[in-house]
Structure formats: C-alpha cells, structure tokens
C-alpha cells in the first residue's frame, strides 16, 4: 500500500483513501465540438504509458475529495512530487528523477552499520 501526499490535506495518507484517475495534463480542447478527428483521437484515445516518470491524476476520494496530480516512477512506484490540479507540470531535476528510479538509494540505509562480513576469517 502506497503512501500518497495529498497537496490539499498537506499530509501523506494511505493509498486506501485514494483512487487513481489516469494520465495527467490532458486538457479538454477548447471548442472541442469543432476539432478534427485527429485532434480528438489524440485527446481522447492516445496515452503515453511511459516506463519511467509518469504524470498522473489521483483523487483523494475518501479524504478531501480533491483531484490532484503526481509525478511517479512507474517501475519503482516512488512519487517524485504531488501538486494541485491546475498547477503547471513541474520541471523535475535530474536528482529528483534519479532518486525515484529503481535501485536509487532513497535513504542512507546501511551506511551507519556498514560492517558486512567484517569479521569473516
């Protein structure tokens, strides 16, 4: 179960309170009635489904009820950042992306002890 930081509740909450809501930053085109078939296809049917950093929507449906956006690594499941609906897509730094990648060292775990096999003869 993931922990997800809700940008409205300003707190990390258990995944059970949330519902995933698909890819983020796909705006309904202005004047949608008149757009071309290609433009409608791109808007409604085509999704990136990236392996790596994804921008996605969540709803804190059993919490504050708000939709919001998140940048998450689709392999490690690590969240880079969550932000309110309507805010621009954030620029992620190289360090942020690296920290979210699988195998990325999220914490300095093990550094403190670091005595693997020290006493091996």
């Amino acid at each position: 179960m993931l922990l997800i930081h809700c940008p409205y509740c300003e707190e990390a909450r258990p995944e059970l309170e949330f519902r995933h809501a698909g890819e983020a930053h796909i705006a309904r085109p202005a004047g949608i009635a008149e757009i071309s078939d290609e433009a409608f296809e791109a808007y409604f049917f085509i999704r990136d489904n990236t392996k790596g950093i994804v921008f996605e929507r969540w709803r804190h449906i059993h919490g504050c009820g708000r939709f919001f956006n998140a940048a998450r690594h689709s392999v490690s499941d690590r969240f880079v950042v969550t932000y309110r609906a309507g805010e621009p897509k954030p620029e992620l730094s190289g360090e942020q992306v690296a920290a979210a990648a699988p195998g990325g060292k999220a914490t300095p775990a093990n550094a403190a002890a670091g005595v693997n096999g020290k006493a091996a003869r």
Partner: peptide, 27 residues
C-alpha cells in the same frame, strides 16, 4: 548479502553477514 537499500531499512546481525555476537550487537 544486503547491498543497496531501496527503502529506509537497515540490516543488522547475521542477516547482514555478521559472524560474531560482538559484531551483531554493535550493528
């Protein structure tokens, strides 16, 4: 042996490859 941690966890004692009681307690 445990290598790079992916989460905030730490391995101590025999699961970390430590062979003696003294080292296990120290870890």
């Amino acid at each position: 042996l445990p290598g790079t941690a992916a989460q905030d966890c730490i391995c101590v004692g025999a699961c970390n490859g430590t062979l003696t009681l003294e080292d296990a307690l120290a870890e």
